[in-house]
Amino acid sequence: MENKEKLIKAFTESLGIEPQLVTDELTYNTIPQWDSTAHMVLIAELENVFDVMLDTDDIIDLSSVAQAKIILQKYDDSIEFA
């Protein structure tokens, strides 16, 4: 599975949303499904799928799909989302 697909799957399963909602512009707390509890489920899922462990600064900064991509690439520069 491509990284972009993995990312979309992590968001859709963690937040319980449709794949078409997972765009770069989707931001924490702007839809009811992406609340603090779902955010933690999402972080755990991203860590599992991409085999990284985020530090707290990145958990705080990961407030959009676009930010998720940037942060994951910071941990592993082989991850691409093209």
């Binding site: 603090s36 509890t37 933690m40 972080i43 085999d51 990284v52 462990m53 985020l54 530090d55 707290t56 958990i59 705080i60 941990y75 592993d76």
Partner: peptide, 16 residues
């Protein structure tokens, strides 16, 4: 509990 765990990580880690 979970909120505290996520906001208490302090060491930068990289796995794998």
């Amino acid at each position: 509990k979970m909120l505290k765990q996520f906001l208490s990580r302090s060491v930068k880690n990289k796995r794998g």
